[in-house]
């Protein structure tokens, strides 16, 4: 079993629902985004770089098979789950940020200050808090907590805290365009494997040799 994701850029409407769902479900502190959607070539999101040349690209952890972040971590806080997902142990991380230097995708987020303090500067209504309130441990290691401490690195974990309940990641469930599919990349008959085969699935930065478990399907046409 190698858990992977396919994102169909033909179906992505650039609404950023996945980024918001991700941020909400995973209680990301102010300023940190595990998931982002960009409009390649443009100066502003959702403005075309050039007439007839607009498409959207969602980016989060690529869960690489040759993951530089996993290899550089001096304490093994970044580790690989049995299904190939790259997780971060919030209790082990020493905050050296070597993984952030190592990652070519810019998806790793550091808690530069106390997340609660950062949230207070947002001026939400009193008592408002978002995010799944329950901690989650994978093989005894803390890989999700509603409140992280300052000084550690965090990132997309393919919503490992919903896996036991048989639920897909929040970004998949929250996508109105149904652009995202998760499945087993080791199984040639899985939906994800077939999509990659039939629709010319490609990876980001293949030249870096990271072998991501996230694939993209190219858009057939661009928004006019």
């Amino acid at each position: 079993m190698r858990r992977g994701m396919v994102i169909d850029l033909e179906k992505c409407i650039g609404c950023r629902s996945c980024a918001v769902a991700c941020k909400q479900h995973n209680a990301q502190p102010a300023g940190n985004w595990w998931n982002r959607v960009v409009t390649p070539g443009s100066d502003q999101h959702q403005t075309a770089p050039e007439k007839g040349r607009e498409y959207f690209l969602p980016i989060h952890c690529q869960h690489c098979q040759n993951a530089p972040c996993e290899k550089v971590c001096p304490v093994g806080a970044t580790f690989r789950a049995d299904d190939g997902t790259i997780l971060v142990d919030y209790e082990r991380c020493i905050g050296c940020r070597y993984c952030m230097a190592a990652c070519p995708y810019g998806v790793r987020q550091f808690n530069w200050e106390d997340p609660e303090q950062a949230m207070s500067r947002y001026h939400y209504q009193d008592g408002y808090a978002f995010g799944n309130p329950r901690e989650y441990r994978y093989q005894g290691r803390l890989v999700y907590a509603p409140v992280r401490t300052k000084g550690i690195v965090e990132k997309c974990h393919f919503c490992v805290h919903y896996l036991d309940q048989g639920l897909d990641p929040a970004c998949v469930r929250g996508c109105p365009g149904k652009a995202r599919t998760v499945g087993d990349l080791d199984d040639p008959d899985s939906v994800v494997s077939r999509l990659i085969r039939d629709k010319n699935g490609f990876q980001l930065l293949p030249e870096k040799g990271t072998r991501p478990n996230v694939y993209y399907l190219p858009p057939k046409r661009k928004e006019a």
Binding site: P40, G41, P49, I59
Partner: peptide, 13 residues
């Protein structure tokens, strides 16, 4: 930024 890509459909960008 290491993730610097050539946007689909654009020349020399």
């Amino acid at each position: 930024v290491p993730l610097t890509i050539a946007p689909l459909g654009l020349q020399n960008v």
